[in-house]
Design a protein around this nucleic acid. Sequence first.
DNA 1: CGAAATGTCAACCAGTTGGTTGAATATGCG
DNA 2: CGCATATTCAACCAACTGGTTGACATTTCG
Lengths: 115, 115
Amino acid sequence: MAASLDTVFSALADPTRRAILAMLLEDDMAVTDVAEPFEMSLAAISKHLTVLSGAGLISQERRGRVKWCKLEPDALREASVWMQGFGMMDGLDLDAFERFLDAELADPSLLEEKE
Amino acid sequence: MAASLDTVFSALADPTRRAILAMLLEDDMAVTDVAEPFEMSLAAISKHLTVLSGAGLISQERRGRVKWCKLEPDALREASVWMQGFGMMDGLDLDAFERFLDAELADPSLLEEKE
DNA sequence: CGAAATGTCAACCAGTTGGTTGAATATGCG
DNA sequence: CGCATATTCAACCAACTGGTTGACATTTCG
């Protein structure tokens, strides 16, 4: 819950974790369902979720057997503000933003390996 | 430089490196001057600068004995767009999104002069 | 020339990261 | 109850990080 710039940026530095966030953009998901598209163990995904949770980027609520993961995009705000200080946000890159939207609407899983 | 989301976010995850970027916002600086306010060796700062350079966040130009470091805020753009996508999708930054729509509806050609 | 200043390189070290397995803990279901 | 499901825990491992120090190369300057 610290949600410092350190923890947020370092949580975002991993492509698996960014892909998870993109998936959660669609809908809340159970841990097992989050793990399904990835070629790694459930335990590894569980750790990634812990990191995301520690950065405040997601919240998790246990309901019965299942732990639901929910995106918390507010946690991005502090980092976003920090970046705005560098002046390249006086109007974001709209072309890129539109491409993001198109890609997102077409198929969220495509966001995984953008670069 | 690579400037992938991975390298940019992980470069930003370190407070020393963020502080360096903030310093370079003021002015271009020589490596020694960048290092001066920090309580660590010059070699450590040199490594941080290598990381920043690898992420495309700074450029370095050697002039005589001195290597000048220059902020390259464009490298933040891709990361910003990625983050902003989350805010937009959740109505967090609806203001900016509406401004985007307004601007586009008013005069789409204005959007070209971004760079 | 010889000395100081500017950086980087190489080796090293401790701590963190991202992954693996196998066991453990709840919870739900027939 | 007994078994499958959902998730974490614990130990372990290789690779990476962020720091150190001392040696090295280059450039400037008296």
